[in-house]
Amino acid sequence: MSLKAKAKKLFFVLADVFGLIEKRWRNLEPGVYIFNYHRIGESQKTLFDRAIFSCDAASFEKQVVDIKNNFTLITTKELAELYEKNQSFDKRYALITFDDGYIDNYTDAFPILKKHQINATFFLTTNFVDSNTIPWWDQVAFILRHAIGKKYQVPGTDKLFKLANHDIDRTIRQIMFYIKQSKAFSTSEMLADIKQRFPSANDLLNQQHPNLFLNWTMAKEMHDNGMTIGSHTLNHFILAQLNEAGQREEIERSKTLIEERLNTTIETIAYPVGRHYCFNDTSVEIVKNCNYKIGFSNEPGINQFTHCRYKLYRYSVATSSVKELRYDIGL
């Protein structure tokens, strides 16, 4: 466990002992709280990126019930209507969202949401739907996990990582951070470098044919049962690493594809990765010009009516504990 993780754990224990978590939770200010998930399941069973798992199914059910009991749940359409009023928010509103379109969103999360009559928005990376694609981050994690004992230097930096079994998950997260924020190299170039450095692990990767993402039939069923579908671009490229034409292709074409497949109007988009360095003013202008009404980042925070509707904050869920989720939001 890293020093930062140990410190967070200590602060959590102290806040719990002194009742600060419950006190803060009861007194959350009005605003829009958006809880973002990625994968639902048991992370230790995957050969790919474990950090992309938000929690297991049982924990997810407890969390969404807690959210439903403590917030006024709204849809993205209702959120857009709130912003059009241009008035202070007088309640604690909440949305539940999912990025990427992994198949467990359909098999694990969707039944729970239906059971509790909760709407969620699922942002689909359209070229992943109905495919056996292994996205770049899952490829990176797989290769590094199968290169134990070796070293890797991130291109364009002096960062040299030893790939050791006891902390491989943390090392993968650190390398991912440098890949995502790189200005000199795209994710495709970084992935190509990793494949070239570790050919044996890449050979093992080429033997994998997982079914990671949902298909259009599943997406339609979810949409027909009250779930909202949004865009997560065509290929999940980091938009800030693309030129204007490349960004437009990713943003515009994904919207068109979903609308054609589901016979609906797509009004929301979540920027891939979503941190402030992963999209830019060009991204936002294209989103506006493509007639999206809402754009979501992955920066944490509470949304107020004065906040730009094309850069909305979301809390990325990465815990199985309801109390830890409350701590992450409230403190």
Rank of each mutant, 00 (worst) to 15 (best):
Y106R: 06
R197D: 04
F185N: 02
Q63F: 07
T75I: 04
N280T: 11
R253F: 09
S131H: 06
H236K: 07
Y152K: 05
F71C: 11
K115F: 07
L214T: 04
I229H: 11
Q181W: 00
I179E: 09
V140D: 01
T306R: 10
A141R: 00
F177L: 12
N69P: 07
W137P: 10
T256C: 08
A15R: 08
L10A: 15
Q181Y: 03
A58N: 13
K23T: 13
I269W: 05
E81L: 11
F279A: 05
T107P: 01
A109G: 08
N289Q: 15
V140K: 06
I194C: 03
L234W: 00
T121K: 00
S88N: 14
I251K: 03
W136H: 09
V273F: 06
K150C: 00
D281M: 06
Y292Q: 02
E81A: 14
Y33R: 06
K91H: 14
N36E: 12
Y83D: 01
K293V: 00
D90G: 11
K183D: 12
L144T: 02
F237E: 12
G301C: 05
G226C: 11
L312C: 08
K323W: 05
Y93L: 12
Q196A: 15
A15Q: 01
L242C: 10
H223W: 12
E221N: 15
E244W: 00
F12C: 06
C278H: 11
T268R: 02
I329C: 07
S297W: 04
D203C: 02
E250M: 03
K180T: 03
N127L: 08
T171K: 15
H276T: 03
V17K: 13
I329Y: 04
V32W: 01
F185W: 06
A147M: 05
E189D: 12
